[in-house]
Amino acid sequence: MAEHVILIAGPMGAGKTTAIQSLSEIPVVSTEAANTDRATANKATTTVALDYGEITLDGVEKVRLYGVPGQRRFDYMWRILEERALGLILLINNDGQDPVGDMLELIKDFSALQERGGVVIGVTRSDVQEYPHTSQYVDSIREVYPHITAPVFSVDARNRDHMLITLTALLFNIQAQSEAPMEDVA
């Protein structure tokens, strides 16, 4: 069976576990533990090891969804997954301390994926905190990566349609980037 790996990364409380629950067709495997860092995200539990979900297509192709826990993204295991990954959904909670900065730092961590159009950004919790506006995320990516147009959407991780739009855009973006003729002058 053909398999594709999609990673979902983002700061603590961004909605990674929730997003995988919205997309997955199997019960999501998560390892949650009591949250001792209520200052960063005010919620009871946080993911300590991994989130895992699946979508099966036509019974012959499987999309594996892995949630990459915050700081654990530097671990050896996650680096291996990154190499196998087709793309990355980066979720950024708009109510974080410095959400735009968090996004830029995470894109840098996954720059190999970004260079081939394999990163899409979903800004979550903008219903909780209105600013920054998505245009601020867009502007700052354009400054740092002027040659790549990464999709940026405002999403609610609990909304399956939003998460499907995000995943679809990611796939189209990867396809378009990889089929564009290689050229210096666009």
């Binding site: 053909a2 594709h4 297509l57 036509d58 012959v60 192709e61 999309v63 087709l86 260079e115 081939r116 159009g117 002027p146 040659h147 790549i148 499907l164 679809t168 796939l171 189209f172 990867i174 396809q175 980037q177 990889s178 089929e179 564009a180 290689m182 050229e183 210096d184 002058v185 666009a186």
Partner: peptide, 28 residues
Amino acid sequence: EIRRLQTVTQPEQVSRVGGLIGRFKSKF
């Protein structure tokens, strides 16, 4: 002039993503 930094594309990726999109289309 817009310089594309990406100079190497894995050819297998081209058909891989296209097929995946096709399956998503029929699924949904």
